[in-house]
């Protein structure tokens, strides 16, 4: 192997952005669509974990990682629809339901996931995009999973969809003003139901990536809060799917900093390096927030109906 020394750090950030960011991409784009319709689903952490479990289990039984991913998406869809259905009732708080579904989803995943901790399921395939290089480290970093590419395409597709299609417009109107939407004859609850459903399905896929590709096994500690963090990233990304993609890449890349610095011998204070993604995100958030303060709505790009930013 080539000795790459300190080049290992930028390389790890690149590799980390590609490896670690995918679950964030899927969950945050999904949540972005949900929130644009005017609901917030804080429960995607539970959906992600359940997706990881169901994806792994189905992949193990069918011997097909893709079947597993599909199953995870379907399971996520069901969780999303459940959230959407409960929230259509008056006076029900969508944030609280999200928190309930977070523990419900993780609980179910842990409950049914016990028998799948030990078995080894097939992994999702990767595309060796680093074939042109003869540096093995670069080849490894550019070993790109298909879902990562799908995630990138999805970010642009979702942005385009929200801006330019009738469905996108419907979602945005429902999210900005339920009254206006009703005046246009839009069934607000139905729009939100399916937006939350789609968000759940994407979160399920994000979970399948965790268990079927990276780190590539199912156990109860598979998610260290990626689902919750991804939901927070949507606010950071100002409700734009493309920004969600960038935020996820940034977050994944910064997460690789801790191990990479230690591997080149910068080893003191590694806990602080591990906090880098959070510090960086917070710093950017503070720097880019408007100084208007609480008199104006917290963030101007926010969908008007969103309970969390009202």
């Amino acid at each position: 192997m080539t000795d790459i020394g300190y080049w290992g750090v930028p390389l790890a950030i690149l590799g980390g952005a590609i490896r670690v960011s995918t679950p964030f991409i899927f969950v945050s784009i999904g949540e972005c669509i949900t929130e644009r319709s005017g609901r917030i689903n804080l429960g995607l952490e539970g959906t992600l974990v359940f997706g990881a479990m169901s994806g792994y289990a189905v992949a193990y039984h069918t011997d097909s990682a893709w079947a597993g991913t599909l199953a995870a998406a379907f399971a996520g869809l069901l969780f999303g629809l459940l959230h959407g259905w409960i929230c259509k009732f008056p006076k029900v708080n969508d944030i609280a339901i999200g928190i309930a579904l977070m523990i419900f989803g993780s609980g179910l995943a842990f409950f049914f996931g016990k028998p799948y901790v030990q078995p080894v399921a097939p992994d999702l395939p990767a595309i060796p995009l680093g074939f042109w290089s003869d540096i093995p480290q670069l080849q490894a970093a550019l070993n790109v999973n298909v879902l990562f590419l799908v995630g990138i395409a999805l970010a642009f597709a979702a942005s385009w969809m929200l801006k330019n299609t009738r469905i996108g417009l419907t979602i945005r109107v429902a999210g900005d003003s339920a009254d206006a939407a009703r005046a246009l004859g839009i069934d607000v609850n139905r729009v939100r139901l399916w937006s939350t459903g789609v968000g759940g399905a994407l979160a399920g896929i994000g979970g399948a990536y965790l268990s079927l590709y990276y780190p590539g096994s199912w156990n109860e500690g598979i998610s260290s809060g990626q689902g919750l963090m991804a939901v927070a990233l949507v606010i950071f990304a100002r409700w734009s799917p493309v920004n969600c993609l960038y935020a996820s890449l940034l977050f994944g890349g910064a997460g690789a900093l801790g191990p990479a610095l230690q591997s080149v011998g910068i080893s003191q204070g590694y806990y602080l390096f591990y906090a880098a993604p959070y510090v960086l995100t917070l710093g950017l958030l503070v720097a880019t927030s408007s100084a208007g303060g609480s008199a104006t709505r917290a963030i101007t790009a926010a969908p008007g109906e969103l309970s969390i930013t009202k």
Binding site: G225, L228, M229, A232, L233, I235, F236, Y271, L272, Y274, A275, Y278, V279, T281, L282, L285, V286, S289, S290, A291, G292, G293, S294, T296, A298, I299, I308, T309
Partner: peptide, 22 residues
Amino acid sequence: RHYRGVNETISSLLLAYIAIAL
């Protein structure tokens, strides 16, 4: 939140992770 309009949900979550690291 008051002075900079930073959303409290995300900042509190980020700060929780930072606090644990600290």
